[in-house]
Nucleic acid binder design. Structure first.
Length: 575
DNA sequence: GCCGTTTTCGGCCCGACTGTTTTCAGTCG
């Protein structure tokens, strides 16, 4: 959690917000935001860098490098502490409310001394904003609504909910006469772990019928904005959907633009400007004459900028532009590359389906191999015994190769105890084809203890995969605190693969940790941890996360042919 | 505040919609 890079990222972001609220130069705000992101995503631990090392980080210049160095030396950043005395933290909280930005936040604070979301809610309730300039009835209603959204979901929803909604909207809009193309873009297309709002694009000559269709959907709750080119609604489940209708010839430029990320788009537009071009959602134009030079497809737009097409999952300005310019974009792992799932459960423990049904479903997916890894006895509520799991092994060997010649691996999901010990002695573990080991309790140990615990699990010669390594649950439980660099190094040293758990509320490891682990030369396993047949299809979220972590086929052990996979598993046993 | 094959100064992505100060600022993506 508290990696120095992350601490500094948060501080610089806070400083950017404080500058914005106090009405500082907007470009300065952006400079701090860019530096914050660059430092957060920088692979090297910044506490090892001196001022000149810091300045090598993109978007970090003399001034910011000095402030960061000051923080690393003293644990403080004087300029931020000064601003904090002028602007209470609660005022910064206000700008997290949708429709409320820095200008309105400052007015609320200066004129009414409102310094928290709760105070603002109370003030609206008491009708105390009535005389405030710029806060008409509609604005107040929007703020009230914004507070509600902030308080319920934190504003973001899971990938499956976003995807289901997107598919519903696209099905409806595709049926409207005149629809040439219809697709979702935004953070869903980039497969971010949560989605703030849904961006849907339509290519058509006339926009009105699509705006009407969206507003009339049974799942549409309120209409937030309705115009000729853009309409925004909020679904009854609270997800905002933004619809843009573009002329068909702008499809590629529109898709590129609305897929984002914002940071990626700023880079592509800047490249355009340097070539005497102008990039907007309508196309790539000659800046002088205004003639369109590319717009129909994303490939065409990127090509005209001198770039290969960049996969949406990489578009975060985390080095993909530089890699594209060098011609070194990774060949990302895809769902089709996955030859088998290495973490799954049956009704022998807490799964819903019997072994035969899970095996059948895995075979239907075309897997070359499939591992069954029911819980070991230390997760006591599962009541596992040696007899039960050996009986399962016997049955599994009978099924092996009988469904589309898919090979079956017999494994188990071990519980990593408080000191890093696992269920069952080595001689019993030696009988399994593979062992996943995961945290299921004692999440609040201090960093040093947790680090030792995880490293010890990796050092167990029978542990092949670290399952859902941080044990986070998105939106509900933060990941455990550990020195991850040390854990990743231990994984690399011992040949222990890190899981990219595909359950949409886990996605664990997350993309940023994957990037860091990859730098240590660690291998990964993209697994569903399926507890039922439908869970097997959640693999797509794990693959999306792996792509966001820049993983190639070679990085992911369950894309390998079985012989190579077996070699990896044996090597880790010899550890 | 950062950056530079035009540059150490003068740019910094671009457009849409809302609400309201009715000609445009604020917010958003």
């Amino acid at each position: 959690m508290a990696r120095p890079n992350d601490e500094v990222e948060a501080l610089l972001k806070e400083y950017a917000d404080l500058i914005a609220i106090t009405g500082g130069d907007a470009f300065k705000v952006r400079a701090y935001e860019k530096a914050a992101r660059a430092i957060g995503g920088y692979p090297t631990d910044i506490s090892r860098l001196d001022t000149s090392g810091l300045r090598e980080i993109p978007n970090v210049g003399r001034s910011i490098a000095q402030k960061v160095a000051e923080y690393l030396r003293t644990g403080r950043m004087a300029v931020i502490e000064e601003r904090r005395t002028a602007i209470p933290v609660g005022v910064r909280e206000l700008i997290r409310i949708p429709t409320l930005g820095p200008k309105k936040a400052l007015r609320l604070y200066e004129d009414l001394h409102i310094a928290s979301v709760d105070q603002l809610a109370a003030a609206i309730e008491a009708d105390a904003l009535a005389d405030l300039k710029g806060f008409g009835e509609k604005t107040q209603e929007n703020i009230r609504h914004g507070i509600e959204i902030l308080r319920t979901a934190g504003g973001r929803v899971s990938l499956p909910l976003a995807l289901d909604t997107a598919e519903e909207v696209i099905t409806a809009l595709s049926g409207v006469p005149g629809c040439r193309r219809c697709a979702y873009a935004g953070s869903l297309r980039r497969m971010r772990e949560t989605v703030g709002d849904l961006d849907v694009l339509v290519a058509a000559r006339r926009s009105a019928p699509f705006m009407a269709a969206l507003c009339d959907l049974p799942t549409t709750g309120d209409v937030i904005a309705r115009g000729a080119k853009k309409t925004s609604v909020r679904t009854t489940k609270g997800l905002q959907v933004d619809l843009r209708v573009l002329p068909p010839e702008s499809w590629g430029a529109g898709l590129q633009y609305f897929t984002g990320s914002k940071a990626h788009n700023i880079r592509t537009r800047t490249i355009a400007v340097h070539q005497g071009l102008k990039l907007s959602e309508y196309g790539l134009f000659d800046a002088g004459s205004g003639t369109s030079v590319a717009s129909r497809t994303e490939e065409e737009v990127y090509a005209r900028l001198g770039l290969p097409w960049i996969p949406p999952t990489l578009r975060e300005d985390r080095g993909e532009i530089e890699a594209a310019l060098r011609g070194t974009l990774p060949e990302l792992v895809t769902e089709r590359d996955i030859r088998g799932d290495l973490h799954s459960h049956t009704d022998l423990t807490d799964g819903l389906a019997p072994l035969e049904a899970m095996v059948e479903a895995a075979a239907e997916r075309g897997y070359a191999y499939y591992a069954v890894t029911d819980h070991a006895p230390n997760l006591y509520m599962q009541r596992m015994t040696e007899e039960k799991i050996l009986a399962q092994r016997e049955r599994l060997r009978e099924l092996d190769g009988t469904r589309h010649r898919m090979r079956l691996l017999h494994g188990t999901e071990l519980n990593i105890g408080p000191d890093g010990e696992v269920d069952w002695p080595g001689e019993f573990l030696a009988g399994f084809d593979l062992c996943v080991a995961s945290l299921h309790s004692h999440f609040d140990q201090d960093r040093a203890t947790m680090t030792r615990r995880l490293v010890r699990a990796c050092e167990n010669p029978y542990v092949d995969v670290l399952g859902h390594p941080t044990a986070r649950l998105i939106g509900r439980r933060p990941g455990v605190d550990a020195d991850w660099e040390e854990v990743f190094a231990a994984c690399a040293r011992t040949g222990t693969a890190l899981e990219v758990n595909a359950q949409p509320d886990r996605l664990d490891l997350c993309d940023e940790y994957i990037l860091r682990a990859r730098a240590h030369g660690v291998k990964f396993a993209v697994n569903t941890d399926a507890h039922s047949v439908p869970h097997l299809a959640q693999l797509r979220y794990g693959v999306g996360t792996a792509q966001r972590g820049w993983l190639t086929r070679d990085d992911v052990i369950n894309t390998w042919p079985l012989t190579r996979l077996r070699r990896f598993l044996r090597r880790s046993v010899r550890g």
